[in-house]
Design a protein around this nucleic acid. Structure first.
Lengths: 338, 338
DNA sequence: GTGAAAGCGCTAACAT
DNA sequence: ATGTTAGCGCTTTCAC
């Protein structure tokens, strides 16, 4: 690869002149003809500024890490797209982190950041991580932004309006006339699960409808956990007529298990999920879901990190725009007369 | 962050001594006590070797790029896992590339490689890319390994045994007594689609069963395209009793469209997909599929790149181990008597 | 308007 | 056994 001095040699000028021209230094007083000579030489040699050289000089790589337990999870599609888009806009490249390496005391984080491989990082912990594991990371005051993973309002996190999302799903069922409504929720130690549960409970309470503890599970967000949860709730003597499922993957599992049990959805049971994904369109029946602004969440996360790295005030911690939106498909229906 | 000279200062030695010790230079003759002093100083200062410094020195970053049109696609899950695993083993970190940036003449590639941001890259093109766009990239002789994207046997690509996979799917249907078998294939200009089609045709021919052109589509690998393809094939006057679908996402769409048309799967129609994914377990009925060794494909891709970068001979271009495996679920059945 | 030189953090060849 | 130094590619201050 051609270096600055290669270009300088070919243009018959000094490296500093080349540097000034090629990096468009604002107050570089360079004569038009040398400027053109330099430009030409650079073009002919196909010059590219060396990344390591710049990084060393600036102590900055313009690379940020994206750490998530499972990037291929369908419900992260929009999130990742949002992150990629905003990262590109902010001039960042994305390094992939394996979140399993997140466990032992933030070793990866300190490597990535400590070695100067990345300027900062975005972390989305799955529902498998324990809060305690994160705490020291949070406290370490590293350039890290958590995505829907930690307490809202914490300095270094962006979150969804999970309460509102779950509330909307619940409200939808209430408006369909359901009163016996269950909640298949996420693991109890995760923030998202707590907030969605809170949204569910608040909406039920506001409607004056009691929420039966027997119809609420905290099994998790995978399809298998959704299957298990549905079986647990629907094989009781008294079963609900509708379910809010706190995650789209779990809802897909729940739908399948319902069929296995001979339950007709939405005839016998209405199901609405929090989170949308392309997979929700392809279930049978197609799954009604509350679409959360994942794209914007991704963008907000990158922007938060950007602001953090540039000592700017962070704008919004909770992403409420656009608001969660009900994607009405075919897994919910008016409560039929008993 | 602490630098080498910080450590040297604290240990009361020179930077080179520190460098030697901390990078375990093999023939570094350093007295045990200074060695220990250096180690201690480094520990106390929480020293981490600076990435940019090393990269500049070695002209090597130990970072490789992973470029794919849609990393969140469920059928890539295993691939990505394999890549991550092997990359970690080879000491590589992964940079995310957006494959949409791949289009205009390999601009991204030359940036990534030309600026020395990555040592090489892994490219999985979706079925949307045209072969021509890739050609110049292939010809450019850059450190690029294509994943199931270009002609088998090409120096810089690893591929699945797509023919075999499609053949196994076809064979499965034949063994169930089906003779009227269709193929919902990928876009005709892609290699994977061609190879799977070839495998389908070869197996049909070997069984002495004619393949009806009317029952073969080349619409693509998305769920929507699967829906369209199924409708096209199954609304003809004479319809097949079984379908091979060349991709799991398309098969999921096909399954859904079949239901919409009032077709019972597998009663009226058997469906088998090439490629497996977790989503195949959650369709209704659960989708029978041929599981391709995606994990190993990912590993092989990284190894191929590693070998390429270290001037070693590349081992295997087509990943045949383990062989494709039929995941027998519930979307296929014996041909019922007419 | 242009060039020389220092220095970012690191390694390795070459002193001592 | 340890230290000095040059240089990887780049930017920037300071001279001229």
């Amino acid at each position: 690869m051609a270096t600055l001095s290669d270009v300088a040699l070919r243009a018959g000028v000094s490296v500093s002149a080349v540097s000034r021209v090629l990096s468009d230094a604002p107050e570089a007083r360079v004569s038009p003809q040398t400027r053109e000579r330099i430009r030409a030489a650079a073009r002919e040699l196909n010059y590219r500024p060396n990344f390591a050289g710049r990084a060393l000089k600036f102590s900055r790589t313009d690379v940020i890490a994206l750490v998530a337990p499972d990037l291929t999870n369908a419900f992260l599609t929009e999130l990742v797209l949002g992150v990629e888009e905003e990262a590109a806009r902010c001039g960042y490249m994305l390094l992939l982190g394996r979140s399993e390496d997140l466990k032992p005391g933030g070793e990866m984080v300190s490597r990535l950041v400590g070695e100067g491989r990345v300027d900062g990082m975005l972390v989305q912990v799955g529902d498998t991580s324990r809060l305690e594991d994160l705490q020291e990371l949070v406290d370490a005051d590293l350039p890290v932004v958590f995505i829907n993973s930690v307490e809202a309002g914490h300095a270094s996190g962006v979150v969804l309006d999970d309460e509102r999302g779950a509330g909307m799903a619940t409200q939808h069922l209430l408006e369909l006339g359901h009163r016996d409504i269950g909640l298949l929720g996420g693991l109890p130690h995760t923030w998202t699960a707590r907030r969605r549960r809170a949204g569910f409970l608040a909406t039920m309470r506001a409607a004056g409808v009691p929420a039966a503890r027997n119809w609420m599970t905290t099994l998790g967000y995978t399809a298998q956990q959704g299957r298990d949860a549905l079986r647990r709730v629907m094989t009781r003597p008294a079963a609900p007529t509708a379910l809010v499922v706190a995650n789209v993957n779990a809802a897909i599992g729940a739908l399948q298990e319902a069929r296995r049990l001979g339950l007709d959805v939405p005839g016998d049971l209405s199901v609405v999920a929090v989170h949308d994904a392309w997979t929700a369109e392809n279930t049978w029946p197609p799954l009604t879901a509350v679409k959360m602004p994942m794209h914007q969440l991704g963008q907000a996360a990158v922007r938060a990190l950007y602001n953090r790295l540039h000592a700017l005030p962070v704008e919004d911690h909770v992403v409420a725009d656009p608001a969660p939106r009900l994607m009405l498909r075919e897994s919910t229906r008016f409560l039929s007369a008993p």
